[in-house]
């Protein structure tokens, strides 16, 4: 259950935060963290409830970005329409990929999304004039909603805050609803869920498509925030970071995606600063070593996520089943 007072307190904290930090660098980090947390909320539904993993969410993020950017520049669409398309296209693609693969073992969706992610990244790079190739697309307009143009960081910050709040509340509704019970039931026992009348393939597909739509939304917003996009933020490594954010924050928790995104973004920044001090001359994406190791450790010791450290109730709830769900039990024997 969600404590309303806590939600309000956190909301007020984030409402006044820009006035406390007075730093464009930190404000930019907060905006990016907020955008990532939108993706991670969706990924959390997919991983924590439907029991599936995607290593291609950076591609959905990128598809959203490029869709919004191309439609708003070359095609001259109004920015809100381009943003809607940025949500629709990844959702559609996810439906196509997810339908056959979700019926199979976890492995197959992981592989299909991984391949899809790399493929899309190649397409961004090789897309010629349409995607601008490795140098990307510039001159993306600011988002304008009914006369209000989001052309300053502070305005965009409040927009992202509102979107994160709305998405969080919607997902909170979802997990306590009939559909959410079904998603949780699938995680606990897929066979029992099926024989209770739940179309588990469809529910997993819906969770997957929903997560892709959220990634597309974040991507569209990202394009309108930075107004210049290139393929590099949509690489496979970013997909891994999204998975890391989801599990570090804690799967199946309300606060997990926010905590996870914040922690990983902060860690990335800290490493960017610290590693060259320790290992002079280190260049490139060396942070990924640490992200990888942290991910392995979390998966081994706390598959339910570090967020469960912070909310004892959930921690206790998960304690009995570190390995996650049982699948085969009910069918053997006879």
């Amino acid at each position: 259950m969600l404590k309303k007072a806590l939600v309000f307190a956190v909301l007020i904290f984030f409402l006044v935060l820009p006035f406390l930090i007075r730093s464009n660098y930190l404000l930019g980090m907060l905006i990016v963290t907020g955008l990532y947390s939108i993706i991670v909320i969706g990924l959390g539904i997919l991983m924590g409830y439907a029991g599936q993993v995607s290593f291609g969410h950076a591609a959905f993020f990128g598809l959203g970005s490029y869709t919004a950017a191309i439609l708003a520049t070359s095609c001259g669409w109004p920015t809100p329409a381009a943003l809607l398309a940025a949500m629709a296209l990844p959702g559609l693609v996810a439906a196509l990929i997810g339908r056959p693969t979700l019926k199979l073992k976890e492995l197959y969706l992981a592989l299909a999304t991984l391949a899809f992610g790399i493929l899309v990244h190649i397409l961004f790079n090789e897309g010629g004039e349409i995607t601008g190739g490795p140098s990307g697309l510039a001159g993306i307009p600011y988002l304008s909603l009914g006369g209000l143009v989001f052309d300053r960081d502070i305005e965009f910050y409040y927009l992202v805050l509102a979107v994160v709040l709305l998405v969080s509340l919607a997902v909170n509704n979802l997990i306590q609803s009939r559909t959410g019970r079904a998603l949780r039931a699938i995680r606990e026992s897929e066979h029992a869920a099926q024989t209770a009348g739940m179309d588990t393939s469809l529910l997993k597909l819906q969770a997957f498509v929903f997560s892709a739509v959220l990634a597309g939304l974040a991507g569209g917003l990202y394009a309108f925030y930075v107004t210049f996009i290139s393929p590099s933020p949509f690489s496979f490594h970013m997909s891994v970071q999204f998975v890391l954010m989801a599990v570090v924050g804690g799967l199946g928790t309300f606060w997990g995606p926010l905590q996870g995104s914040g922690l990983v973004v902060a860690l990335g920044e800290a490493l960017r600063w610290a590693v060259p001090l320790v290992i002079p001359g280190a260049g490139g994406e060396y942070q990924i070593i640490f992200f990888g190791i942290i991910l392995v450790l979390v998966m081994i010791f706390r598959p339910a996520g570090l967020g469960s450290l912070l909310s004892p109730q959930v921690n206790q709830e998960r304690a009995g089943r570190p390995g996650g769900r049982e699948v085969d039990g009910g069918v053997a024997g006879g």
Binding site: R184, E188, S189, A192, G329
Partner: peptide, 12 residues
Amino acid sequence: RTFQNLQLFGNM
């Protein structure tokens, strides 16, 4: 149906 080896949604 029910299951011989229980298949409850244990965390719910």
